[in-house]
């Protein structure tokens, strides 16, 4: 469940936490776009390193590292699938170029995880809901979204308890062949799903008893406003986008392998 730890918000005050969630989201989208634009290791590595100051500034490096560690398995999977894909489609030859492409694809995934992790670690679910509302998203949708985000850690904790309860009844998750191992998760998934459904029904009742949707026009205690820091981030975002477009069209990107004399 360590992947979820990397998405769990903790209340800390830092320049990054105080930024407007809307601007942070635009930043994530910009990083996303830049990561999708490139296919090679060097620009993706640059994107990865570029974000580290944000992590340090927000003082969330510990949780951030944990989320990256949680993503290792998927990253390894992406690397192998890419490598195998190239291997089987290109006459069963393994070239340095293939390895580098696979590495780039993996790095792209890591960059995406990194930026999402920073976003969720530094944005409270309340602010996120507020941001959606102020972006004129209907309240029903923004509420559903924030609730989903809020329940991720709750579900993760519940999954842990269920796992403990079944282990106490002799369930061994790591036992058996591949199919058996998948089947081992049934005793964990069923209680988890049942309780999630039950919880959602209870939540609906609790909301209705507190007059949810009684007025069409809701007011908020807090309103989001853009500050100096947000405009600075906007500058950075525009910078990233311009640089991405410029590099994409006008700069020939050298490959890592060319430094070592491979074609």
């Amino acid at each position: 469940m360590s992947v979820f730890d990397g998405l769990k918000f903790r209340k800390v005050y830092s320049p990054i936490h105080n930024l407007d969630p809307r601007m942070k989201f635009v930043y994530v989208i910009a990083i996303f776009a830049a990561a999708i634009a490139f296919y090679s290791v060097i620009p993706l590595l640059a994107l990865f390193i570029f974000q580290i100051p944000f992590v340090l500034l927000a003082r969330v490096q510990k949780q951030w590292l944990r989320s990256l560690r949680g993503a290792t398995f998927l990253a390894a999977f992406i690397f192998l699938v890419n490598l195998a894909g190239n291997f089987f489609t290109q006459n069963y030859t393994l070239t340095v170029a293939n390895v580098e492409t696979a590495a780039a694809m993996t790095l792209r995934f890591v960059v995406l995880v990194e930026s999402f992790s920073v976003f969720f670690l530094t944005t409270s679910p309340d602010h996120l809901g507020l941001a959606l509302e102020q972006s004129r998203v209907p309240y029903e949708f923004s509420f559903a979204f924030t609730t989903a985000v809020r329940f991720v850690p709750v579900l993760a904790e519940e999954a842990q308890t269920i796992m403990d309860a079944q282990k106490a009844r002799g369930l061994e998750l790591e036992k058996g062949n591949f199919m058996k191992r998948i089947r081992n998760y049934i005793p964990i998934l069923i209680p988890l799903i049942v309780s999630a459904i039950r919880r959602s029904l209870e939540l609906a009742e609790a909301m209705e008893s507190r007059a949810w949707g009684a007025t069409k026009k809701r007011t908020n205690l807090y309103a989001l406003k853009l500050h100096k820091g947000d405009f600075a981030l906007l500058g950075i975002i525009i910078g990233i986008l311009i640089l991405t477009v410029y590099v994409y069209f006008y700069v020939p990107i050298p490959t890592v392998r060319s430094f070592f004399g491979y074609p």
């Binding site: 269920i162 403990d164 282990k167 002799g170 049934i186 209680p191």
Partner: peptide, 22 residues
Amino acid sequence: TSVASLARNVGFVFQNPDHQLF
């Protein structure tokens, strides 16, 4: 040793039955 082998001697009933019924 593992939980599974300890569990043979130590039975643990959790607080919430919904965490184990499936």
